[in-house]
Structure formats: structure tokens, C-alpha cells
Design a protein around this nucleic acid. Structure first.
Ligand SMILES: [Mn+2]
Length: 302
DNA sequence: GTGTCTAACCGGT
DNA sequence: AACCGGTTAGACA
């Protein structure tokens, strides 16, 4: 018994050592870590993260930077040209998918995310569903124009102001999609256990017909579309779900009316160890003009 | 082939 | 857009 405990403590120490070591490099320069080291890190990362008393902030806080210390990467100039888009089509589903950044550049941007971004805590990180409050199984924060907020499951999340870093990314996403955005929702999935259940985005805050641009960084994850008519026991119809891998440095443009007819989800993938950060850029209806009924639908954009 | 174990899936709440 | 419990599918020995 004593022996087992001793081994346990020793391996945990080693585990922490590799974790700190690689974690430090991850927050400075991805390129300096080889794949063997990275694999060890990921396994140890999962061990630590699954512990009940794991405090993620403790490990990331010391690398955080002030928003104004952002050294502009000029992200727009990093986009791979010409960009190859893949068309995703199904009944009432219309999306474009493409890889915007090489691995090296996507690594850099992810690294900046880990340094620059802070996430909501406490009540803002909770939802009420079927009468019960839960912590959301991921980290989340929203940035946007003054006065905007995002509501889901009894939770209204106010947008924080734009930062130089997020402006840089927004500029790149606008450039590549031809659309402007006044809001971004950021979700951070620390490993394959973090996830998001199936849902449609609440459209009452969104400008009708406007596309949503979803930038993925880090751990590639499955993304599932399910048609509203083919869900549940009493499904009206049988429509195959669509599965899509959202890769490191990729952009998914969800165009109207995809979100009206199709649910989407980022399911658990327990064997995946890496962190994924997703940014969904949106065009929201200003609070003073909410209701969306009075908003004239925008002319269809290219 | 058969048993075991885990992750994934689905419906209920 | 959450968790839980029951069921199922696939990996491995
Ligand atoms: Mn969504």
C-alpha cells in the first residue's frame, strides 16, 4: 500500500514537471517542442485535468498579457492564398469550409489566444436547463460593440470591448468572407471532455440571414449537423446527420438558412487531449433595435 | 467466437 | 443548450 502510494506521488511529480515545462513553451513558442515531448505533455495534461482539484487558471495565469501588449501579427497577411473553399450542401444547409492558416501560423495565433484571452467565471459561466443550474462544460467569453450581449439558456453574457488582438482576427475573417462582424463568441475546450450539446443559435439577437463565421484553432474536433425534422423519437423524417472535422486554422462559414433548419453540436471525444479554441463571429442586432422584426433583411451578399 | 471495457449515442428531464 | 441513465458499437485479449 505504502509502495503504491510512493509510486503514485513520484509519477505525479514527474507529470507536473513535464506539464510546467511544455506548458511554458506552449505559451511562448510552439516550434520549440518536438512531437515526443508534446505527446508526453498531452498525456500528463489529461491526468492533471481530470483531477477533481485541477485549477486551470493556476497554470495559465502567469502567461497572460495585457490586451494592449499585443504585438500585431497582422493576421490578414497570414491567410493562405488562394484559399480553397469546400462547399457543404444539403437540404436547407449551405456552408463553406476552408483552411485559412498553415500549422505554424495557426500555432502562433493559438498561442496568442492563450496569452491574450480571459474567460467568464461564476454566474456568467452557468446555464439553467430543465430547472437545474450547471457550469458550462467549457470556457466562454464574448467581445463586441458596446451594448451587445448574447443570451442562451437563461444566461445573458455581455460583450467585453474589442481588443487589438481580436480586432486583428476580426479584420482577417472579414477580409476572407467579405462580411463585417460586430460580435464574437469565444469557446475554449480544454480537451476532448469539454463539449457543446446540440442546439440552434438563438436567432432573435442575430441579424436575419447574416452568415456566422467560425474560426477553429487547436485540437481538431468533430462537428455534427442534425436536421430539426429528424431529431427525437417522433422524427417527421429521416435525414442523415452531417459530420465535419473542424481543423486547426480552419474557417466554417454557416450561411442562411442553415441555422434555421439544422442543429449543431461539438460532441465529447474523450480520447482527444489537446485544447481547442473556437471563435464565432456574428452580426448582432443592436440592443436599442432588438426584436429583429423591424430590421429589414439584408440584401444577399456574395 | 466470446467476454469485457469504454466511448458514443439517444431519449428523458 | 446541461446532465443522467440505458443501450449499443467497436477495440482488444
Ligand atoms: Mn452555436
Amino acid at each position: 500500500m505504502l509502495f503504491v502510494t510512493f509510486i503514485g506521488v513520484t509519477s505525479l511529480r514527474k507529470c507536473c514537471f513535464i506539464y510546467h515545462d511544455v506548458n511554458k513553451e506552449l505559451h511562448n513558442d510552439f516550434a520549440r517542442i518536438d512531437t515526443v515531448m508534446m505527446d508526453k505533455f498531452l498525456v500528463n495534461k489529461r491526468k492533471l485535468e481530470s483531477a477533481d482539484d485541477f485549477d486551470e487558471n493556476h497554470h495559465t495565469k502567469k502567461y497572460k498579457q495585457e490586451a494592449n501588449d499585443y504585438e500585431a501579427l497582422s493576421i490578414k497577411t497570414l491567410i493562405i492564398r488562394p484559399l480553397k473553399w469546400r462547399d457543404l450542401r444539403a437540404e436547407n444547409l449551405d456552408c463553406d469550409y476552408g483552411i485559412l492558416f498553415s500549422k505554424v501560423n495557426a500555432d502562433r495565433i493559438l498561442c496568442q489566444c492563450e496569452r491574450m484571452l480571459n474567460y467568464n467565471e461564476g454566474q456568467l459561466a452557468k446555464v439553467k436547463i430543465f430547472g437545474k443550474w450547471h457550469d458550462i462544460p467549457r470556457k466562454q467569453v464574448a467581445h463586441g460593440d458596446p451594448g451587445l450581449s448574447y443570451t442562451f439558456s437563461n444566461n445573458t453574457v455581455p460583450a467585453r470591448p474589442w481588443t487589438p488582438f481580436l480586432d486583428d482576427i476580426r479584420d482577417a475573417v472579414s477580409d476572407v468572407t467579405g462580411h463585417s462582424f460586430n460580435f464574437v463568441l469565444i469557446n475554449r475546450y480544454k480537451n476532448g471532455c469539454d463539449h457543446m450539446g446540440e442546439h440552434r443559435d438563438d436567432e432573435k439577437d442575430l441579424v436575419h440571414g447574416y452568415p456566422i463565421a467560425s474560426l477553429s484553432l487547436g485540437q481538431p474536433r468533430d462537428f455534427i449537423f442534425k436536421h430539426a425534422d429528424s431529431r427525437g423519437k417522433k422524427a417527421k423524417r429521416s435525414i442523415e446527420p452531417l459530420k465535419l472535422l473542424l481543423e486547426h486554422g480552419s474557417l466554417l462559414l454557416m450561411k442562411h438558412p442553415t441555422n434555421t433548419y439544422w442543429y449543431h453540436a461539438l460532441p465529447q471525444r474523450k480520447r482527444l487531449l489537446g485544447v481547442r479554441i473556437n471563435m464565432t463571429f456574428r452580426q448582432m442586432v443592436p440592443a436599442s433595435n432588438s426584436g429583429n422584426k423591424t430590421t429589414k433583411p439584408k440584401a444577399e451578399l456574395p
